[in-house]
Computed example of a mutant assay.
Amino acid sequence: MTNSGAVSASWASRRPYKPGKPPRRQVRCPPSGRGAEAFQKGVQALAQYTEREGGGVPGRAHVEQFPDGTEHRTGVWIANQRARRDRLDADQLRALTELGVQWATV
């Protein structure tokens, strides 16, 4: 309150919202580069897992071994995709759905 009893509007200048700047969730970039490669590798690991196990989703601690000897932390990857599902595009969600991931239905 000011000396005159009116409420000061100085709090409005400290607000983090900036008009004209869209919220982050509305900005969507096409899948390309390192992120797209990482997603494809995760899909490949999940496909290998579901083929071998006959379906299902691996637990968080699961690590998938590729034939070339490299490892993929498939359980952590699928948990991260679920946490970021609002940022996945329709093609990515479709790929996960085809592999039996129930939360990825389009």
Rank of each mutant, 00 (worst) to 15 (best):
A47V: 11
K41I: 12
R52A: 03
E37Q: 02
E37M: 05
A36K: 10
G33P: 12
C29R: 06
E37Y: 01
Q26E: 15
V43K: 11
F39M: 01
Q40T: 12
G55S: 03
P30Q: 05
K18P: 03
P23N: 11
R52K: 03
L46C: 08
G54H: 05
P30D: 02
V43Q: 11
Y49K: 02
Q40K: 11
A47S: 15
E51L: 12
G54M: 05
Q26V: 08
P22V: 01
P30W: 02
T50V: 15
L46F: 00
Y49H: 01
R25G: 15
P30L: 01
A38N: 13
A47R: 15
P19N: 04
K21C: 09
C29H: 10
A45P: 14
P31N: 00
A38H: 07
A38Y: 07
G55A: 02
Y17S: 09
R24Y: 05
T50E: 02
R24E: 04
P23T: 12
A47E: 15
P23Q: 08
Q26T: 14
G35D: 13
K18L: 08
G42A: 04
F39Y: 09
T50G: 04
E37R: 04
V43W: 09
K41P: 10
A45F: 10
P19T: 00
Q40D: 15
R34F: 11
K18V: 13
K21H: 09
Q26G: 14
T50S: 06
Q48W: 13
G56M: 00
Y49E: 06
G54W: 07
T50Q: 14
A38G: 07
F39N: 04
Q40V: 08
R25I: 15
R34W: 10
Q26H: 13
Q48V: 09
G35Y: 06
A45H: 10
K18T: 10
R28N: 13
S32M: 08
Y17D: 11
L46Q: 06
V27I: 14
Q48K: 11
G54K: 07
G20F: 01
P30K: 08
G55N: 02
S32Y: 10
R34I: 12
L46H: 15
A36R: 14
S32F: 07
R28L: 09
E37T: 03
R25S: 15
R52Y: 00
P22Y: 03
R34K: 14
A36I: 02
